[in-house]
Design a protein around this nucleic acid. Sequence first.
DNA 1: CTACAACCAGTTTTT
DNA 2: CTGGTTGTAG
Length: 789
Amino acid sequence: MSDFDDPFEGAVSLSQRAMAARPAPYLDGLNEAQRAAVEALDGPVLMLAGAGTGKTRALTARIAHLIHTGKARPNEILAVTFTNKAAREMKDRIGRLLGDSVEGMPWLGTFHSVCVKLLRRHAELISRDVGGRADDLVETGHTATLRPNFTILDTDDQIRLMKQLIVAANMDEKRWPARTLAGLIDGWKNRALTPEKVPSSEAGAFNHRGTELYAAYQDRLITLNAVDFGDLLLHMVTIFQSRPDVLEQYQRWFRYILVDEYQDTNIAQYLWLRLLAQGHRNICCVGDDDQSIYGWRGAEVGNILRFEKDFPGAKVVRLEQNYRSTEHILAAASRLISANAGRLGKTLWTEAKGGQKVRLIGHWDGEEEARWIGEEIEALRHGAHGLPPMRLDDQAILVRASHQMRAFEDRFLSIGLPYRVIGGPRFYERLEIRDAMAYFRLAVSPDDDLAFERVVNTPKRGLGEKAQQAIQRVAREAGVGLVLGARGAVQQGVISGKAAGHLRGLVEGIGRWHAAVLEGEDHIRLAETILEESGYTEMWLNDKTPEAPGRLENLKELVKALEQFENLQGFLEHVALIMDNDSGEGEDKVSIMTLHGAKGLEFPVVLLPGWEDGLFPSQRALDEGGQKSLEEERRLAYVGITRAERLCTISFAGNRRVYGQWQSQMPSRFIDELPARHVDVLTAPGLYGGGMRSSGIEERATQADVYNSPGWKRMQSRGPATPARKPVVVDAEPVPFQIGDRVFHVKFGYGEVMEVDGDTLVIEFDKAGPKHVKAGFLKPADHADDVPF
DNA sequence: CTACAACCAGTTTTT
DNA sequence: CTGGTTGTAG
């Protein structure tokens, strides 16, 4: 039934063994170090693979070699990665190496996906004494176990659950936010600590209730037959530790273990691996201590630094030849990372001499930066800076924090530059959002048959397959759309009874909504009307499944998103573009992603915006965490630069909007750490005014040059780009407004006073409609531009 | 009980 | 600026 009971499941044709005698094509073209890493099959191996040194290639070749030599069948190899993307890529490449005969590597996947598989088999081994509560009428204090069909909670569910527990514990949810508790518990799980194992030194956590709430949370999860992400590993470690017989079974089964991105493993993952590898010690870990960027999530660089101690006699192989970047890019990255202490140390080298230096440019503000990058990308498309024409697919913008993305999206949308956001929110892919969008589409164009098909029976209207086929038949015969077909089907009596009534209601609704669109009714109100009249909102309200509240929340958000648009059509068009981004693989587009999301990827052209103190390195890293987190930020910078093959451009802005307020900041301290010999400082119009030397600057003089440039001084003296605009709060009494006055409100904009009632006024706002507002939040319209200083 | 205006707190990074 | 929560009016 399973991979275990039948060792040949998901395995390999026997011809695979016969292949062993034949030459191994996957070894061709490997360099000496790579080959050594591939051929050292038995015993512990640590592959220290610098950026761009062909790590994945060596790893996949190693797997191919294991199979090819008959050391293990594909289903006896455990290979773990951190991301699904990495797992997918490895599967693809192994498939290419070995041909289609190798169907599956069932145990190649992320830590989490492998653990789900294992845990489903052994769920019952996880149990807790669920304490009886005062309101527990059934029974107090019984043992509950996890069952194999457990559900995996997402972050939202976790927070909701913890919120309930915090409230139940009579704690002020304001002072002790569920998010904080979630972080705390996650940290414990990353360290493989069950509630009972949390050291007493941490008993003070979360107002001295941390461990207690953690225990309550775990109880609740078992009762709900649910686990969170952290549990997947924690539970497996618990099982392996408490049941040697189970552990032994897997130690025997997984004859060879491979681990990608070992520098990012946390303690739980480390224990899990060590337990499994204990017997045969056939474990190969691949990583780069300079690319450890998940410390905030519990990753322990110590794991990789300690490998030789954990596995005495381990063979250590260093991959140091870089095949990705040109020498200037590599030199800049190497110099930057050399500022970190406690590294294993590698000397990356490349045969690709020459090429463009890393470019550095400052801008007035974030918008100008986005504008400049847009122009740069367009220029590179047609060939610039000594490079041949670059496709958009060849270019990527890597940001520190996802909120930086918006500036680029706005800009690219307005100039029509195709882009794709990788790792962005999947909001528009959600079921409920898609349903709601289908209703909106019908309102705009009732002949949208796909939309009609999607929602004709959602919510349930008794229109099953039969009825839908009838509608389609009538429509086809009459040569009309499905909506008209539906009307015809009802009129002809093809559909009758209750279903007919519901269908008529839907068709009439669509007609009504469409008329409203044509009449230009307020689209936000209309959208809400549609969701309500269609019964869609009600459907989720009546839904008792745990995800229903979340879905309703999403629908709320969708309606809110409408506010940014003039009408429904504009909105739908916009979303169609977004959808294109998500689904439109294969189309030529610029990639926008976070630095974290970029790990493992490479691009000919890389743009690194936002190199400012407070943004990158982030304010948090600067405030807390000291040297350790600053070093992690530096590694992030290192990852960013080493993504570039041929052209790497770093930029910063003097001013940026933060929380809607303008702030100015200094260029990143990392800029100071770049070797001037390998950097070209570009001049931006409007900032440096051509006052900067563009080359030949002294070593380590980069940032000083920036500060001393005439442009920077001018920028400082000009102050923030736009002064903060705050409402002038007028004293409440006497109310200085009369009926008919034009007024301005921070939130709702301009409007006219319709009524005065004490200090409460009724204002007919131009954009937002009629509102009741306190006088203190209003000021005369002709003073709207007043600045409070 | 709902709706909505006022208030307030938050932004890294993700399986 | 955004989103979520709170307090109050209806």
